[in-house]
Design a protein around this nucleic acid. Structure first.
Length: 907
RNA sequence: GCCCGGGUGGCGGAAUUGGCAGACGCUCAGGACUUAAAAUCCUGUGGACCGAAAGGACCGUGCGGGUUCGAUUCCCGCCCCGGGCACCA
């Protein structure tokens, strides 16, 4: 059957591209500017590909193909984030090893992706479950383990440098460890090895801690804060409870300021940056010390409104605050203890759902340091131990929560902020007895800062507190350290062993990868013991520990060997995806996680800057993926990257320079696609019925990439018809090429040059839908032409290639073979043609049509020479019959000519 | 409650720097081809008004106001939708 037939051509070209490695990247071709375009790492689920996947993947593929044609060295890889719960749970159910299931899924996913004609360099494929990959995940973990954060320099430094600082006895680096109760004057060399390890453990970016964690019984593991939504697990929606457990943590809080600051230079959407800022939650304020009346103790509170200090009429401690038992009076003790028990029994969920104020009076008073007033100290669970100091000064006049509490427990409310007086406006009443006034304004009833606007009042009172030694400026963050261990089998094992003295040491690099033990039964144990506890032989080892605290596993009886137990937890799924974009650059390197020269070219931010670009081109140039990773992957990954940067292992400080979130594709009924609604579209079916090129084109034609939009089968047919129409403009009813060698008429050549410019500009700004519209428009014009020249045909398919690569390749091959035989040895591909240049002169028409308005309303059109001056244009406008009619003989009092745009006459 | 997006025909959307609102596609209607249908091609398709017709005049980008010769675009106030955060002091 003649005509455009995708099923007959697509497989053929996919195979050709694969065999000839048409899209392989030469990483060392550093003479060219680089462009790194990345898709978010897919989890190869058993469900296979969803129509949402090709949306982002087609967008990046268009960019990749376009940039190659523009002379860039393009990195466009794909791989698998393959560790994780679904495969493990399925494997348990099916009594198979998860690796088998994972490999099957990967094969299916790869096949599906290849059926869409993406120009990935498949030789760079990575798989997080491959020991050749996770060796380096473990290696990076050890870099975190071997790094401490220097607050002064705001930078991660090698732990060996901390040891040097300790050895020097530098007073700025006091040896601290609460467990050991070390004295001020302690010298590093006086500590034994165990003590030294315990001290260092308190500084490492990867550390173990006994903390209240999110335990999810349903998943049999703990979860990070970011993985818990409304008290339930993000995966599977199982209930999550607070439970103290010893777990591995990553000190992401140390990087809070850098993670916020780094956002400014990124080309990300405002909403995404805002989500990260909110999650990190920076608050500027002050810490203030309150004396406890009748004792020598002080309570430190954190406030963002130090200007309201004069309005603090009581104080609240979190129920878990360590000072509560000590300060509670004997007659209140029973009540306070009962309250503490009750509060402890409440889950996070209950707390979130029920925000009614509860609490008890401790019987004790504090002294407000600014006015010496005695204020009662209460205990209430509306103050959280995990934020600030776990204690607040309550200012009910200017804080809604405090107001609610004060009203309920009949505590006094004193106004210390009023509305700003503005000369013209009437003074509006603020009645803090009726309602808290939480806005900024002007300090009142506050001797030190009377009459000052809020911002100034904050600054002044903070300075005064610092001067008097009763407070200081303080910045707090909401973000908590990242809980990094999981009680599951299918993840990276920690390259860590536990010694009998209760300390941990790392494995030496030469011990990596630490492979997962083969287990018959890798089900969760039903307790907090991870499945790896079942691998007794693997767990119990003998090691030799070197001076730098790294261990090598040795046979028992080796001189110097000591007993050790391996860490039983595994890493969370996020570990592998934190750095995959680096591994793609050098995926088979066995000696380094990436070759430094390769890293510098592809990610470095100084030497290979794109010419004439104001933007710093370091990192991945374009990253496309779903918004669901806003505070998970994207935060974790930035954190790891900054640590690697600090340690000199990568040369740019942000991994993803420009990031775009593709919008969700809804079902044809504008509802979320779901099996239960029966509105799920399977890409395989679309490819079968219309071909990959139509699927690709339609997904781009639906609307702006970032927007949520519904699927439309009629719309797919629309772009399919478009491809057929292009085909028919080039081939006759017997598929004989009908293009001619004679030059094309000028009107069409002009339209073509405009199209070249339009499509290029639109791709640059990711406006793929308008580029397709322009191609359609051009093709409509072409269809009316008596013939199509070879030059026009080649240019058109070159422009279409990023969108419809199989189509373009087929047409190109037919044009080629009609003219000369293709040598078998050379790889011929339309993708090797450079992007066409447009001739600026061809964009300018000799005459232009300009609308003429009278009093702002469109009344006529004039045709004038392009570039005509104002006088010419106005004369033409005034001479126009329609315009004359509306002027009704009146002389315009104002004549406006916007060059080449329009004329407006005002009468 | 707070923060960030957004609101344009029957539908998806376009209008890039304040300058012809509705490009392009879908849908629908009419026509050509055909014994017929499909496919294909052509014409029309924001609303309402006057006119037999050619044509003419009006309204229109969530709502109300403002700036401007001119506003989908800028400013103020409000309504609605989507997303995020939420006792974080």
């Amino acid at each position: 059957m003649p005509g455009y037939n995708p099923s007959a051509i697509e497989k053929k070209w996919q195979q050709y591209w694969n065999e000839k490695k048409v899209y392989a990247t030469n990483v060392k071709d550093t003479a060219k500017p680089k462009y790194y375009v990345l898709d978010m790492f897919p989890y190869p689920s058993g469900q296979g590909l969803h129509v949402g996947h090709p949306e982002g993947y087609t967008a990046t593929d268009i960019i990749a193909r376009y940039k190659r044609a523009k002379g860039f060295n393009v990195m466009h890889p794909m791989g698998w984030d393959a560790f994780g719960l679904p495969a493990e749970q399925y494997a348990i159910k099916e009594q198979k090893h998860p690796s088998v299931f994972t490999q099957n899924n990967i094969d299916r996913f790869r096949k599906q992706l290849q059926s869409l004609g993406f120009s990935y360099d498949w030789d760079r494929e990575v798989d997080t479950t491959d020991p050749g990959y996770y060796k380096w995940t473990q290696w990076i973990f050890l870099k975190l383990y071997d790094t401490w954060f220097d607050e002064q320099q705001q930078k991660g430094r090698p732990i060996s440098e901390l040891v040097e600082e300790f050895e020097k006895g530098n007073s700025e680096f006091r040896i601290q460890n609460s467990e050991l109760g070390l004295a001020e004057a302690i010298r590093w060399r006086d500590l034994n090895a165990t003590q030294q390890r315990k001290v260092l453990a308190g500084y490492r970016l990867a550390y173990e801690a006994e903390v209240p964690v999110n335990w999810c019984q349903g998943l049999g593991t703990v979860l990070a804060n970011e993985e818990v939504i409304d008290g339930k697990s993000e995966v599977g929606h199982f209930p999550v409870e607070r439970r103290p457990m010893r777990q591995w943590m990553l000190r992401i809080t140390a990087y809070a300021q850098r993670l916020i600051g780094g956002l400014d230079q990124l080309q990300w959407s405002d909403s995404l940056k805002e989500m990260q800022r909110n999650w990190i939650g920076r608050s500027e304020g002050a810490e203030v010390q309150f004396k406890v009346d009748g004792t020598s103790e002080t309570i430190t509170v954190f406030t963002t409104r130090p200007d309201t200090l004069f309005g603090a009429t009581y104080m609240v401690l979190a129920p878990e605050h360590p000072m509560v038992p000590g300060i509670t009076t004997p007659d209140q003790l029973a009540k306070v203890e009962a309250y503490r028990k009750w509060a402890a029994s409440r889950s996070d969920r209950e707390r979130q759902e029920d925000t009614k104020k509860t609490g008890e009076f401790t019987g004790t008073y504090a002294i407000n340091p600014v006015n010496e007033q005695r204020i009662p100290i209460w205990v209430s669970d509306y103050v959280l131990m995990g934020y600030g100091t776990g204690a607040i000064m309550a200012v009910p006049a200017h804080d809604e929560r405090d107001y609610e509490f004060a009203t309920k427990f009949k505590l006094s409310i004193v106004q210390v902020v009023g509305k700003k007086q503005e000369a013209s406006s009437k003074k509006q009443e603020v009645n803090v007895q009726k309602e808290a006034f939480c806005e900024e304004g002007m300090a009142v009833n506050s001797p030190w800062i009377e009459g000052l606007p809020t911002a100034e009042a904050k600054a002044k009172i903070t300075a005064m507190l610092e001067e008097k030694g009763i407070g200081k400026r303080q910045i707090n963050y909401k973000i908590r350290d990242w809980l990094f261990s999981r009680q599951r089998y299918w993840g990276e094992p920690f390259p860590i062993v536990h010694l009998e003295d209760g300390t941990t040491v790392r494995l030496a690099d030469s011990e990596l990868p630490l492979r997962l033990p083969e287990l018959e039964d890798f089900k969760p144990t039903g307790t907090i013991d991870p499945p790896l506890s079942k691998a007794a032989e693997w767990v119990n080892v003998h090691v030799v520990v070197s001076a730098d605290n790294s261990a090598r596993v040795v046979p028992p009886g080796t001189p110097g060997a000591v007993k050790a137990r391996r860490e039983l937890n595994t890493m969370p799924q996020w570990a592998g995806s934190c750095w995959y974009y680096i591994r793609y650059l050098d995926p088979r390197n066995e000696n380094a996680f990436v070759d430094p020269a390769v890293e510098k070219y592809w990610l470095g931010n100084s030497e290979f800057r794109i010419q004439n670009s104001e933007l710093n081109s370091g990192g991945v140039d374009l990253y496309v993926g779903g918004v669901e990773h806003a505070v998970l992957h994207l935060l974790y990954s930035r954190f790891w990257h900054k640590v690697l940067f600090d340690r000199g292992l990568v040369t740019c400080d942000e991994p993803f320079r420009r990031l775009v979130n593709q919008g969700l594709i809804l079902g044809e009924d504008s509802q979320k696609m779901s099996k239960s609604r029966g509105n799920v579209v399977n890409p395989d079916d679309v490819v079968r019925d219309y071909g990959a090129d139509s699927l690709r084109m339609f997904e781009m034609f639906m609307g702006p990439l970032e927007q949520v939009k519904p699927w439309s089968t009629a719309g797919v047919e629309g772009v399919y018809r478009f491809l057929q129409r292009v085909w028919r403009n080039l081939f006759d009813e017997n598929d004989a090429l009908k293009i001619v060698v004679a030059p094309q008429d000028e009107a069409i050549r002009r339209a073509l040059h405009k199209l070249i410019k339009k499509v290029g500009d639109d791709i640059e700004r990711l406006s793929f839908n308008t580029a397709i519209a322009a191609m359609m428009e051009f093709n409509n014009v072409l269809g009316k032409a008596p013939s199509v020249s070879r030059e026009v045909a080649l240019t058109l398919i070159r422009i279409m290639e990023p969108y419809a690569p199989h189509f373009a390749e087929e047409v190109y091959a037919r044009i080629q073979s009609s003219e000369f035989r293709i040598q078998n040895s050379t790889v011929v591909s339309v993708s090797h043609l450079p992007w066409p240049e447009y001739d600026p002169a061809m964009l300018i028409d000799a005459t232009i049509e300009v609308p003429v308005q009278v009093n702002g309303k469109l009344r006529g059109r004039i045709t004038i020479p392009n570039g005509a001056d104002e006088a010419t244009a106005l004369a033409a406008a005034l001479a126009d019959a329609e315009v004359q009619k509306h002027l009704a003989g009146k002389e315009p009092k104002k004549k406006i000519y916007v060059k080449g745009r329009m004329v407006n006459l005002v009468v």
